[in-house]
Design a protein around this nucleic acid. Structure first.
Lengths: 233, 233
DNA sequence: TCAAAAGTGTTCACGATACACCCATGG
DNA sequence: CCATGGGTGTATCGTGAACACTTTTGA
């Protein structure tokens, strides 16, 4: 403990051992036109037929964010991914037998990530909007992560993190529509994203059923945050 | 530990005992026309002449947010205050002798809060924009808390949390100007805040040097969140 | 030549901004 | 009666939203 001792507090609440800390990660990806999240089966003795978000070790010599990032990259076989802190959950009712503090991170994995390694076969991508039963408060965590994803999509460029390096404007628009759950106007979508300087065209085209579509690339140097509309002038 | 064991991770990082968890709170208030934050002197043997954010006990029987709320209410003698989670800081370099995880909350205390009790005399309100030297990474925590405050001010009604129950429009405007660090147009400010239905007039006036000013009250039922300008239509 | 997806501009409405004077009170 | 802060309306501009047709390719 650094500095002065804890400030006293007259709460009549049981003291006792420190709660256990754990590190969890909510990862989203797009797969088969659906938003998916990575889940791990729960211990059937405690939470039968339930799933939970992946649990990584809390290492004293490493920041939680670093641990989450390197474990995830190894697990998913991707060189880069988007990662940020989601929330820290605490409270006595979260687990039946122990006091538990969960520091939860939020990650996005690009569409072309390799399938999971065999030795991690217990982990499965599951549909994020219709997940299987989740243990503890992980349903609450999932809905908060989905809210965060939708919200971030509206004011930042986070959507590109779910796509491969190059993509067509239609693919990008479909990604946004899938996550936001609404359809967008094609011309307005294109105008805004192109004027924003967030993506740049490549020289390549992708041939599909109709006319080939130009491929674009995300510009990582772009200033992607849009300032919120201020409540006051 | 619930469910399956931690997913392994090939990081070659030292294992060891779990890091220590602590609970800290950044509180802001307005005092003498300045934004102030509550600080506690650090242990001089470790951080001489430094200050740090108040440290509350981590109780296994209570959610961190509840502990922070009840401790702060007791400390500041206020019946209500605004509280939300700020961030969880972790990493090996945060403290000279131990691995430390700090779950930090963000609070706003109304202007008319009573002075601190005598027994807490070591705690002091200090200017938030020109603070004394801070221990560990608490300068980084402070600047993030200030950023959060300014940002929240722009898209939510959080400014009222720093004022007493009734206030004049000029007081409210000065609060916003003080925190945002810029001057605002009086007519536009009034129009927007009144049209937003965020406050309602009382029957009272406050007499000052010039014409008495109508007192207003925050409407807690108001929908205070302003939707951000969406990056895409 | 037809189906299927890509690509492209303009108009309209609303909200944000800038801006200057009269009003009520206390000393 | 005057100094001090309280209170009020309008004109302009920029941004968001709605909307339909032409182009290119492969089958």
């Amino acid at each position: 403990m650094s500095g002065i001792s804890n400030l006293s507090c007259n709460n009549e609440v049981e003291r006792g051992p420190q709660p256990h800390i754990e590190l969890r990660v909510v990862v989203f990806t797009l797969h088969q036109d659906h938003l998916q999240t990575l889940l791990s089966p729960s211990d059937p003795a405690i939470f039968p037929n339930c799933w939970e978000f992946p649990n990584f070790p809390v290492l004293p010599g490493q920041a939680l964010e670093q641990t989450a990032e390197s474990c995830l990259k190894e697990l998913l076989n991707v060189p880069e991914l988007y990662l940020e802190q989601l929330f820290t959950y605490s409270g006595p009712k979260r687990h039946p037998t122990q006091s538990l503090i969960s520091v939860v991170y939020f990650a996005l994995s690009p569409l072309d990530s390799h399938p999971l390694e065999e030795r991690k076969a217990s982990l499965l991508w599951q549909p994020a909007n219709t997940p299987p039963p989740l243990a503890m408060d992980h349903d609450e965590i999932l809905s908060y992560a989905l809210r965060r994803l939708r919200y971030k999509l509206e004011y930042s460029a986070v959507g590109f993190e779910l796509l491969p390096e190059t993509f067509t404007l239609s693919e990008l628009q479909k990604t946004y529509e899938m996550i936001l759950g609404e359809t967008l106007d094609k011309r307005n979508f294109r105008r805004r994203i192109l004027q924003g300087g967030i993506i740049e065209p490549t020289e390549d085209y992708r041939s599909g059923e109709g006319r080939p579509a130009r491929l674009y690339r995300y510009r990582p140097d772009a200033v992607a945050e849009v300032k919120a509309r201020r409540l006051f002038p």
